[in-house]
Computed example of a mutant assay.
Amino acid sequence: MRDITSRKRVETELMQKNEDLNGLNEELTATQEELRQNIEELSKREQDLNQALAEKEVLLSEIHHRVKNNLTAFISLLSLDGSYVDTVEGRALRKDLQNRARSMALIHETLYRTGKFSNVDMNVYLTTLIGQIAGSYAKSQEIRIDIDILGVVLDLSRASTAGLIINA
């Protein structure tokens, strides 16, 4: 006769640990399945967001392009002979209106060119704007322009306001 009590105890412990391990394995498998489903759902949401973003960018690009073109047409209408009073004040008013419209058109052109629709690089915008304003005045006057605004970026609303102030 042999005493197998300790052997039976070890076998019982081994079976219990095996059952525990199987339970943990089932939990892990379920968790992996949940993770896979979550990853699939996140991927679909990411695709939807990317598609919506692409559509928004196309729409914004088209809007800015159309606004710029409409402002350009407005500027051209101001240039037509007979569309203003031919006095010094009338010519000054026409020039002021053209410069203001150009500043708005330039913002939209800058946004359209850069593809960034929420912020305006003021160095690019103001360099061009101030050059246009200076070019609209008599060439006999010597105008020196110093622009030192590297790295300045403003939102569309503030950039528009700054452009109109510079035109004033």
Rank of each mutant, 00 (worst) to 15 (best):
I63Q: 12
N38T: 08
Q51W: 15
R66Q: 10
K44L: 07
A54S: 08
E41A: 14
V58M: 05
N70W: 02
L59H: 12
L53W: 10
I63F: 03
Q51L: 14
E40M: 06
H65A: 15
H65E: 14
L53N: 15
I39S: 13
K68P: 02
I63H: 10
K68T: 03
V58Q: 11
E55C: 04
H65I: 04
L59E: 14
T72V: 06
R36G: 09
L49R: 06
A54Y: 04
Q37I: 09
A52D: 08
N70H: 15
V67H: 06
E46N: 15
E46I: 13
I63S: 10
L42M: 10
E55Y: 03
K68E: 12
H65F: 13
A52L: 07
E57A: 07
Q37E: 13
R36W: 01
Q37M: 01
K44N: 08
L42E: 11
N70L: 13
L59M: 10
R36V: 09
Q47L: 11
D48R: 10
A54Q: 07
R45T: 09
V58K: 12
Q51F: 15
N69T: 07
N50S: 00
L71Y: 04
Q51E: 15
I39V: 15
N69I: 04
L49P: 07
N69W: 00
K56L: 14
R36N: 12
V58L: 08
A52F: 05
E40P: 07
E57K: 12
E55W: 02
E46K: 15
T72E: 09
A54G: 02
E40K: 00
E46R: 15
A54P: 05
L71W: 04
L71A: 07
N50D: 08
N38Y: 05
N69A: 13
E40I: 07
N70R: 13
K56P: 01
R66V: 06
T72C: 04
H64T: 02
H65C: 10
S61F: 00
K68D: 03
R66A: 09
N38F: 06
N50Y: 06
L49E: 08
S43K: 01
K44V: 00
E40V: 06
